[in-house]
Design a protein around this nucleic acid. Structure first.
Lengths: 340, 340
DNA sequence: GCGCCGTGTGTCAACGTCAACATATTCGAT
DNA sequence: ATCGAATATGTTGACGTTGACACACGGCGC
């Protein structure tokens, strides 16, 4: 900065004023300074700026590595929104929920230069990690309901699961089986609870849910358990990947999708439409979740007020993996042939 | 820091020495200081540190938002490795390759506190953006071959494409069709070139490749064009998503995979094994790419030497979407029925 | 007994920026 | 002609940390 000031024949303060467009600067002077900045390739030093102002214009994100597609998209959206708002994003990956790992992430983040933190980790895993969230920094939680102490943003899991379950019931299926996500997952819990409630509201008995771990492999294993039971005609998988595994299991046993069994997923993976058969799924909007999380954090930062954030809605996308169940007459007529 | 010093009855400098474990500090004093830090919840201020030392202990990553699965994984690996090495990661998303967008990303990154930059953007898109990479900062490129000016790290695209093509030829297919990635993509280009060379090395004429854009949808469209030609018995798609689309197209027309047509992908999506049929693919290792990129950058940072980084190898994973072609006898015997 | 080295601690200045204040100039209103 | 407001620029100090240097003390070898 000093060099620029000398080059332009002004004081450092004037350079500062030009850079920040604050206060009065003569037009000619401004031009001279801008010229000098250009020539010398001057870039303001953010460290000094941060030191002076106490603001870093950076947001920290704590997130599991190897995260789900949805979380990756959320991160992406957070990055985009933060960038729009002139904030940088500092990413702190956490490899497991082991307590010291998560705690270590917080420590690193505290030392690093951030004005606030967005945590994209399942609530239960957070609980498990027994992390005390530092109080100096504003925090927003995603995918979590530790809502009493910090604002949180999330998809409306319950609504989505209801849409999926009702869709299958409306098609005429007597009941709907469920392949749920891992026990520790808050989202999985919400989807499972909502599925059960939806069935019960219709006076239908909910079968015992099978538990997966979000992976297609676990969906396949659940499908293997289900496929030998002829009574199973409709399966709601808690995410698209597990739905893929379920489909594979049934197909492998020669049971047709959706002829013999309807399968609905959850997530809205972009490729779900191109699977064979194209997968009926609940479309999430992680990009909205990410943007809302940033907005909520910035609101806390600026105003100090706790932003009230609504849950982000989902939509059912009906494709070809779900259909009305075969009547017993159908079944006799066409044992197991692929549809067009 | 001042408070801690007062609390412990020492000077600020001694506190600094304790924090950084540098220089001589008496055992009793150290303990007193550590105690005081604990009590007061002292955290060193990174801005001041950076200002003083000129080092930020942070790495910037420039990457397209909505990036491919592979790049997401690479980012993840970069984050993990950087974190291990005590570096924070600053993520700068770029929404399009429009010149000012990318240039803007650089500017933001220069202003922000980073010691070096890793760029995860296709080389051609970089070229197009006509970005001059700033010379003050060490830069490592991923997914690119602008190798003359900066070190670069990448998957061995050519080797992978060769594996896939040779696999199909070895199964007995007369030739191999190819659904390539977008024209602007360096990876796509390398995979296509290698596919062609492999065919020519075997004295086989390469059919005209079809061009997709990495999406399953585009793979489907390519598949629609191919499926009516009975001569097509083997397709190598430049990524798994397009392979999914290709499979759907053939299935939709009643042509069996792998009975009538073999399909091989590229990427090693974790769910590829659970597709129906499980997809033969070329397994990449983005986690290695990310780690190497960080290592190369840190080597530049510390030593100033240009790290020599090898290409990261791939492996062919043979699953059930590829098989020997039917002989004409087979074809007459079993027109189009699903395998187990 | 003298000087020297190793150890432990304090003082000072500087990193680059910007808020606060001080100063200088111009111009219109009285 | 004088004053005050608006405009334009300079000076100073402080943000929190740490490197350079200075100082103080005890033990060792000669």
């Amino acid at each position: 900065m000093e060099d620029v000031a000398r080059e332009a024949g002004v004081s450092g303060q004037t350079v500062s004023r030009v850079v920040n467009a604050r206060g009065y600067v003569g037009a000619a002077t401004r031009e001279r300074v801008e010229d000098a900045m250009q020539r010398l390739g001057y870039r303001p030093n953010s460290a000094a700026r941060a030191l002076r102002s106490g603001r870093f214009r950076a947001i920290g994100v704590i997130m599991f590595s190897f995260s789900s597609y949805g979380n990756q998209r959320t991160l992406d959206a957070i990055a985009v929104r933060a960038s729009q708002m002139g904030y940088a994003l500092t990413l702190i990956p956490v490899e497991s929920s082991a307590r010291d790992t998560v705690a270590g992430a917080f420590r690193r983040l505290e030392e690093h230069a951030v004005d606030g933190i967005i945590i994209v980790i399942e609530a239960h895993q957070l609980d498990e990690a027994e992390v005390e969230i530092p109080d100096g920094l504003p925090v927003v939680l995603v995918d979590s309901n530790r809502g009493t102490t910090h604002p949180f943003v999330d998809t409306d899991q319950a609504q989505g699961a209801r849409l999926a379950t009702e869709h299958l019931l409306d098609l005429g299926h007597e009941t709907v089986w469920h392949v749920s996500g891992p026990a520790k997952s808050y989202s999985a819990e919400r989807r499972r609870d909502s599925w059960r409630q939806t069935l019960e509201a219709r006076g239908v008995v909910a079968p015992e849910p099978l538990q997966g771990d979000w992976s297609a492999e676990s969906g396949y294993q659940a499908g293997v358990l289900l496929r030998d039971d002829d009574g199973v005609t409709a399966v709601f998988a808690a995410n698209d990947q597990m739905a893929i595994g379920v489909v594979r299991a049934f197909r492998e046993a020669g049971r047709d999708i959706p002829g013999d069994v309807s399968v609905v997923g959850f997530d809205g993976l972009p490729d779900a439409a191109q699977l064979w058969p194209p997968l009926t799924t609940v479309q999430q909007h992680p990009e909205k979740v990410g943007a809302l999380a940033v907005d909520a954090l910035l609101a806390e930062l600026d105003g100090g007020e706790r932003a009230q954030t609504p849950l982000v809605g989902t939509e059912l996308v009906v494709r070809q993996s779900s259909a009305a169940p075969r009547t017993s007459a159908d079944r006799a007529a066409a044992p197991a042939s692929p549809p067009v």
